[in-house]
Design a protein around this nucleic acid. Structure first.
Lengths: 144, 144
DNA sequence: CGGTAACCGTCGATTTTGTAACTAACAAGC
DNA sequence: GCTTGTTAGTTACAAAATCGACGGTTACCG
């Protein structure tokens, strides 16, 4: 009978690794700023692009629109972002970090980059190959 | 101001990739057998090890014990597994697939292996390096 | 022994997430 | 202009994950 070693099975391993990396990364923004993952992603996306609509944030960060909607509201209530009606299309709202939000972003980013650098360091020369393989896989699966 | 390109950030990329691989893999066991992810994992673990307690399944497949408990009950109701009290320790139950459960397992496994092989094929010669890098990362993060 | 601590598995309650319906706004065809 | 179809974002509801506590059992240690 054919068997499968679950602990060596690629989908399972990716799932597990992604969860533990996320968990470890939480230490970077969790304790100091009390952010959820969706909130962190909205913050990171707006920090990177200055202004964006909720729709665009969802597309770029691969989040469902209700998740974006809730994260945006939470950040708004913390005064980390503001919304303003688009002059072109009054259905959409242009989001932008407040100075408070940018301050938080500026605090987290160096720590996030250090976190990533630490991981890639432990991989040593394999790091580049991992990134290349990731890119390859992303291409394969993003056709959906 | 320091910025971070979220779409190139390792934790985010792992998370995203893991989600789309899981999603694609769902096509292997979802439509034919209507399994949830926890149920699939319990099935796969029992298929691999013949008999196991719920606790052991949780440890091996990295699932919370309540998740295991409910998945086990669901599979039991489908007559895909049976439980029997351990003679050594009456707190724990020894789980085992029924012939019906093994039949399902036998149907899914070849498709799962083919799915994985297809992925590794598209990576070509980089496949081995990806697996090595994964192993390395797992080691780093499984210390928790 | 006897008592306390640790354990396995289950259950109920809370929180998070996804689905689907809805409002308000735009766009295209006639 | 009017009708029909599509879109951005919110809301209501359902499904799922997580957390805390419990009953019943075993292990530990005086």
């Amino acid at each position: 009978m054919t068997k499968l070693a679950l602990e060596e099975f690629l989908p399972y391993r990716l799932n597990r690794l992604s969860a533990s990396v996320s968990q470890a990364f939480r230490a970077v923004y969790g304790p100091h700023h009390d952010l959820t993952v969706p909130e962190w992603r909205v913050l990171a996306t707006l920090g990177q692009f200055e202004t964006m609509s909720a729709k665009e944030i969802g597309a770029h960060s691969a989040m469902h629109k209700t998740k974006v909607s809730r994260a945006v509201r939470a950040l708004e209530e913390r005064r980390w972002l503001t919304r303003r009606e688009s002059p072109d299309d009054r259905r959409e709202e242009i989001l932008r970090l407040t100075s408070l939000g940018r301050k938080t972003y500026a605090e987290i980013i160096p720590r996030a980059l250090a976190f990533e650098a630490r991981i890639l360091d432990t991989l040593g020369p394999d790091a580049g190959r991992l990134l290349a393989a990731l890119r390859h896989l992303e291409q394969t699966f993003d056709k959906h």
